[in-house]
């Protein structure tokens, strides 16, 4: 090696400052690369909902709804909600991992839009939600599920899933910022989510539940989301249901987006 500096180390000037959108899209590109390099993550995301779909439909379906096909029709929109809500935990874990590795220190020392790394996480989340929901829906269609509202209903449902995934995502981003151990983020996340998902109308009609539980199930945001998506895919719903279901994600976003920024800047 010579003592003279190699040509590449000669001064390279800074190009014009990129836009906030360009920064966010670059982080989105990173999220897409992750899918290419770590395809296993999709396996984690879809295995549980696939198991749930098969077990609930074939083991409990007949007993709960009279026939497995009737039950699948009832259950499938709800399992999509469950998938998206559970998936939100993974972005918190990813964030916690990035923070632990010092990667965010580099991002924070760059002259970029401060929220761009989070926008990138969101892009990754949205992709994850859409891919997982497509796989579950495909399996549902193979098993005999038929969305009565057709393609527009399915597209509407997917847009709705992205919206609730976006809202729920903030909870786990905040956890990811606060907790340095990714597995703790996962444990805490599922501890919080399991009662929300099971004490809802995803798996069963709450009519037979005791009054005190039904009082909770009726206002559980997961129930409201499930009611809304059933309306979108199977018909018989209203835009009011959708609006009601979006209140919780909207409130979470309004409350936790500023908290996220403050936590990120504070570190």
């Amino acid at each position: 090696m010579s003592d003279a500096p190699p040509a590449v180390l000669k001064t390279v000037a800074r190009p014009p400052k990129p836009s906030a959108l360009s920064n966010a899209l670059t982080f989105g590109w990173r999220a897409m690369l992750k899918f290419r390099h770590v395809p296993e993550q999709l396996f984690d995301l879809v295995m549980t909902p696939i198991m749930f779909t098969l077990l609930f439909t074939f083991v409990f379906g007949g007993a709960l709804a009279g026939s497995t096909s009737d039950y699948l029709q009832f259950f499938l929109p709800g399992i999509l909600v469950q998938t998206v809500v559970f998936n939100a935990v993974y972005s918190g874990m990813g964030l916690s991992t990035d923070l632990g590795k010092g990667l965010f220190d580099r991002f924070r020392s760059l002259p970029i839009w401060p929220l761009a790394p989070f926008a990138g996480l969101m892009v990754g989340d949205i992709l994850r939600h859409l891919i997982a929901a497509s796989i579950i829906l495909t399996i549902g269609l193979l098993l005999g599920y038929r969305p009565e509202m057709g393609l527009p209903g399915v597209l509407g449902a997917f847009a709705f899933l992205v919206a609730i995934g976006f809202g729920m995502g903030w909870i786990f981003i905040v956890l990811g910022l606060l907790i340095s151990t990714p597995t703790t983020v996962m444990t805490l996340g599922f501890t919080f989510l399991f009662p929300l998902v099971f004490a809802s109308n995803i798996m069963v009609d709450p009519a037979t539940m005791p009054d005190w539980l039904r009082a909770f199930v009726d206002v559980n945001p997961v129930s409201l989301m499930t009611t809304a998506i059933r309306g979108l895919m199977n018909g018989g719903g209203s835009w009011g249901d959708v609006g009601l279901a979006l209140i919780a994600p909207a409130l979470i976003t309004a409350a936790l987006a500023p908290v996220t920024l403050a936590l990120y800047r504070r570190r």
């Binding site: 190009p15 990129p18 670059t26």
Partner: peptide, 9 residues
């Protein structure tokens, strides 16, 4: 990734 964040296209 970093080059793009700096503004290289």
């Amino acid at each position: 990734l970093l080059a793009r964040l700096w503004g290289f296209k």
